[in-house]
Nucleic acid binder design. Sequence first.
RNA 1: CGAGGCGUAGCGCAGCUUGGUAGCGCGUUUGGUUCGGGACCAAAAGGCCGCAGGUUCAAAUCCUGUCGCCUCGACCA
Length: 579
Amino acid sequence: MKMSQLLGERFKERAFDIASQNLMTRGGYIKQVGNGIYSLFPPAKRIVNKIEAILREEMDALGGQEVLFPVAIPASLWELSGRYTSVGSELVRFSDRSGSPMVLGMTHEEPAVHLAMHVAGTYQKYPFMIYQIQTKFRDEPRARGGLIRVREFTMKDGYSFHTSQEDLEAYYERCYRAYERIFARAGVPEVISVQSDSGMMGGKISHEFMLLADIGEDTLVLCDACGYRANIEAAECITSNETDEVLDPLTLVDTGENKTIEEVCGFLGTDPAKSCKAVVYQRNADDSFVVVFCRGDIDISETKLRNYLKAEIHPAQELESCGLVAGCCGPVNLNAKADVIYDQSLMGATNLVCGANKEGYHYTGFTPSRDVGGAVPYVNVGQAFSGGPCPNCGEPALRISHGIEVGNIFQLGTKYTESMDMTFDDALGNRVHPIMGCYGIGVGRLMASVCEAKHDDYGPIWPISIAPWQVHICALRVDDENVRREADALYIALQAQGIEVLFDDRAVSPGFMFSDADLLGVPIRLVVSPKTLARGAFELVTRDKRVKEDVAIADALSRVRELIAELTAEIEREVPESI
RNA sequence: CGAGGCGUAGCGCAGCUUGGUAGCGCGUUUGGUUCGGGACCAAAAGGCCGCAGGUUCAAAUCCUGUCGCCUCGACCA
């Protein structure tokens, strides 16, 4: 490819805070078409192609069979699984010309089951995995960060079908390893897996693959003591309370204008951990209220609460209509039209401060086991916290971090095969539902994540395995006859070796040319100029600045091949064996 | 969905308060001089001032509506 022909412009102006969005916009990789909707310029499309090639190789190595599901899907298919109504407005619903309801595919469990259900009626076909690389549309409430979070995106999604849970688990392990291989091959071996909440995908065991990054939208808890890693949505919140010897009597105190836990505890000189706070939610479906009581220093995990209630919820907009007193909600003398939930963080706690359900008043000396009528049904809806105990090893060593979710794997179970009634005959002639797993990777998000992880102030530093080109020739002074001749010859010779070359043949100043080269992030750069030719050489530099040397013109081809092999081997060394 | 902000040349922006010839920088085109980290000179092209109404002799500017985009929050497979 010659730069003089390459479509796309590079800009100097810095436009965005997120590195990948900034560099990929400035570098002429992506162009926004609408909110969360992007077109890709050739450099980005080339990277995507290489990522997809890795995905295909790894999926095929798992015995996967590539298929293609539709983007526009009759709603009836989603009605079968029950998700037509259970999924919110992220699912785009529309009607075709005849008025039939349709959806845009946001994930493809339904078409996968639909495809397989009548061609896998015998156990002898199992296990099998089908996958596709295709467009998804999710009408996110808020797209952001360039390709990090978009509404339309390309995803590799695979679906495996098994005759037993054991078989699924064995295959899941192989997929897990394949995912580690994929991220390592894409140049980001630092991607880690974390235990995750299955959300509305259904199923039990699931992992998310995360690139740790401050801009990541997922919050993770990591244990430095035992290596436990989980999405905070899935991490159990461990708390313990020391029971005081002497139980104070429940005492009404005037707390004036103090409302928040900080204010009330500050006013009374109490540790927030010795208080009981109320968090109020409403169910989306009917606006009915749910009051959660928890220890004052603990946050509520909306995800856990949602899972417990099996209902979509949102923070309460107002409290009056259910009879709660804002700022003074408490479990004692509570007279409200709301469901009440006690978080585990209150178990065993004594002598707490809590709201008195009376404007301007709180209680001290609240002890749940004594003051709440009947046995308190504790549930675990608290959020793990920095420095808190690890759910795995118990060490108080939890660390909070952020990550970009670049992939996930789920053990789905029979949620979809049951609801859509997919069955097979087992060896005994029994008709049973196959057990499913599903496996996703966002292609564009992975590209942006690599950029996020591998860049400097001047542009991306693409790993050679996914770089848009392997070699970038910068011909300074193409008006110079010798430069022109040698650069042309080099371009042709490299291509003849099957090497992917970008040739900057433009008559622009050196600074301009190098800046563009930095933004394109090609791993190996060859500079051809009157100066290098006077030395009978080209200058060879790597984008990561580790190599900067002269190569004799005659040696250029072999040296470039050698360097490509070295850079490739470096990546391969990080790739674990498949299982 | 809640709060705030912005739509003016390909990109980045000024002008709007106080209505009166549409501007600046970058980029583009042409010619010339330059040439190892975003060069310089000269000339030129390029805009229904998001869209629709309204007020006015006159609207980029004031009013109403609408659409789009951005940021924060809510939400998230």
